[in-house]
Amino acid sequence: MAQVSSATPASSRTASFILRILAFALSLVSLVVLATNTVIVTDSDFNEAKLRFQDFYAYRYMLAAIVIGTAYSLLQLVVTICNAVSGGEGMLVLSFYGDKFMSYVLATGAAAGFGVTVDLKRVTDGGGLEMNKFYEKAYASASLLLLAFICTALLSVISAFTLPRRSP
């Protein structure tokens, strides 16, 4: 039994480190994809208009969720690396509550992105090739954010198991 308890912290630290790297990378790529989502659309009268992600409130919320999630992931990644170097346990309570909060923020950001994209696609009836590129980028960004949420949710579970082992 002692071997299992001594192996568990090392394996949970490794899993946490890998998941934090993944969450950071996924949210960063999601940020880049969303921030570059712009399209020029032409109507039936051949008038051109530039459509950007920031023209829609739900995408702005998604951007805010991505930025907050990326910053939190970077902070926790730095803390995890510092703890690995120093051999300390770190801020387990911050990780416990922070991972739970961030998983909700990331999940709602992804849901907002998926929701507004579905609604826009339905309203514009597909909207042609240009709009399809806009929708595909929006779906890609929301999908990456959803994957970052899954990583953060798994981190939340790991931190829930790590917290009770902390010595008083």
Rank of each mutant, 00 (worst) to 15 (best):
Y61G: 04
A84F: 07
A71C: 05
A64R: 08
A107N: 02
N83G: 11
V67T: 05
S95A: 11
F53L: 12
F114K: 00
A84I: 11
Y72E: 12
G113C: 05
G88F: 01
V85K: 12
G90W: 00
F101M: 13
G90Q: 00
V78A: 08
N83E: 11
F53D: 03
A71F: 02
V67L: 07
A58K: 03
A84E: 06
N83V: 02
F101S: 13
S86T: 15
V67N: 02
K100E: 10
A58G: 03
Q76P: 09
A84N: 10
I66Q: 03
K100H: 12
A112Y: 00
Y97T: 11
I81T: 05
A111R: 00
I81R: 04
S73D: 05
F53W: 15
L77P: 03
F101E: 12
D55S: 15
R60N: 13
G98P: 03
V93L: 14
G98R: 01
G87Q: 09
E89R: 11
V93S: 11
A110Q: 06
A112E: 00
Y57C: 13
A58N: 05
S73E: 04
A64P: 07
A107P: 00
F101T: 11
L94D: 12
V67Y: 04
S86R: 15
M91V: 11
I81C: 04
G87P: 06
G69N: 03
V93T: 14
L77V: 05
I68C: 01
V105Q: 03
G113D: 04
D55K: 15
M62D: 08
A64L: 12
I66P: 02
A64V: 12
G87A: 09
M102I: 05
G69A: 07
